[in-house]
């Protein structure tokens, strides 16, 4: 189902990858500057929603490769999972843990894992709603 106009579909071709990249950027810098899991998740959900308007839900599903539903589940798993390392250390549930990745100067942390979980949940929830709605709509018409 191609619903988009020419301008929209051309714009989408450039915009979607940019938006996905931008969302990753927002996600990773979120701890220090405006951004974070919620915002990044919304940006990327917007990107795929745009893609879906142009190319139809099947194409978006193909592009995503995973069912957005699984994104929700995986996101929740990450969210809950990030709470557990603290337990291992004998600290209270959800206490943040930080590890330095040697050589790169990169900081890996449970809040980051948690934020990625948030990102996936937001992405999954919004897309589940939007894609399913479009599909049902199409069935009706």
């Amino acid at each position: 189902m191609k619903t988009g106009t020419l301008i929209l579909s051309v714009a989408a071709q450039t915009l979607v990858p940019l938006q996905v990249l931008f969302s990753l950027f927002l996600l990773l810098r979120g701890h220090d500057e405006p951004g974070g899991g919620f915002i990044a998740g919304l940006v990327v959900a917007g990107a795929f929603a745009l893609h879906q308007f142009v190319n139809g839900p099947e194409a978006t599903r193909r592009l995503l490769r995973v069912d957005p539903r699984d994104c929700i589940g995986f996101g929740l798993l990450l969210g809950v999972g990030s709470a557990l390392p603290a337990w291992w250390q004998g600290e209270a549930f959800l206490t943040a843990q930080w590890w330095e990745v040697p050589g790169l100067g990169l900081k890996l942390s449970t809040p980051l894992i948690f934020d990625i979980g948030v990102y996936l949940v937001v992405l999954g929830s919004v897309l589940t709603a939007v894609i399913t709605l479009t599909e049902v709509d199409k069935d009706e018409t």
């Binding site: 701890h31 220090d32 974070g36 929700i72 809950v80 942390s109 809040p111 948030v118 999954g124 929830s125």
Partner: peptide, 29 residues
């Protein structure tokens, strides 16, 4: 370890609340 206080609150200080919220969001979806 974060400079964006809002984000630090969301994913660290009040992470349990956020965890609850993403569960709500998932349920709605």
């Amino acid at each position: 370890h974060g400079h964006n206080i809002v984000n630090v609150i969301l994913v660290d200080f009040r992470a349990l609340d956020t965890l609850g919220e993403i569960f709500v969001l998932s349920l709605a979806a």
